[in-house]
């Protein structure tokens, strides 16, 4: 009920605070959530991936996350510095279904917020909730260490409930993954992101330099 009520406020919020204000609000919600969940430390990637599988990490709040262990992110020396992760179902899908049946339609402000975010922050939102969601991941990864290294989360691709997709080519190039491969992942997953050690020397970054 709370989630549906919150959606009914988007229109109101974007009228009062403006679309930019709504983005700032949602970003703060994502940031607060990450801060309140607290810090985590793992001895290595296997222990992090097991914790994720067992629902023990902060990332598990999002639901059924799969560590795609065949898709390791490696640095210039070939060492594994991260992995690609995929969320089976967007966390907002149940909310959106409830809205469809109890209220009837998603407010237009939903798309307006997503478009503004895509134009002003990064081109990765398919609905207004991506703002909370992506900010949460980016903040929560700062509170987690693997082998004493803080993490970084990069948004790679997502599929909205309308079927529209966003593929972040800049980030994919940086980690050296073919965008078409990630597109195929979207057939079975709603959201794909990378978690890697912050500051790792990646092949894509080296080429830029």
């Amino acid at each position: 009920m709370l989630d549906v009520a919150l959606v009914s406020l988007i229109k109101n919020m974007s009228e009062k605070a403006g679309i930019e204000g709504a983005i700032q609000y949602w970003s703060r919600v994502g940031e607060n959530l990450a801060k309140r969940i607290g810090e985590e430390a793992y001895m290595g990637w296997p222990s992090f991936n097991v914790a994720l599988k067992e629902g023990r990490t902060a990332f598990s709040i999002e639901g059924d996350v799969t560590a795609l262990t065949d898709l390791a992110i490696t640095d210039v020396d070939g060492d594994v510095v991260g992995y690609i992760y995929a969320l089976k179902e967007c966390v907002f899908t149940p909310t959106i279904k409830r809205i469809r049946y109890s209220v009837g339609e998603i407010p237009d402000a939903d798309r307006a917020v997503a478009e503004e975010y895509n134009n002003t922050v990064q081109n990765t939102a398919t609905c207004n909730f991506c703002v909370i969601h992506q900010k949460f991941r980016s903040e929560v990864s700062k509170n987690i260490t693997v082998e004493n290294q803080p993490l970084e989360c990069v948004q790679l691709a997502n599929r909205g409930f309308r079927g529209d997709t966003k593929i972040n080519r800049v980030s994919l190039e940086r980690i050296g993954i073919n965008p078409e491969y990630v597109r195929s992942l979207l057939r079975n997953y709603a959201c794909v992101y990378g978690i890697l050690m912050k500051g790792a020397r990646l092949r894509g970054s080296e080429e830029d330099e």
Partner: peptide, 20 residues
């Protein structure tokens, strides 16, 4: 049951939004 399934992310974020 599917419609009624809760999404912890949204619920918890909403509570924190209200606390804010």
């Amino acid at each position: 049951a599917k419609l009624g399934r809760h999404n912890p992310f949204v619920d918890v974020a909403a509570y924190l939004f209200l606390e804010d």
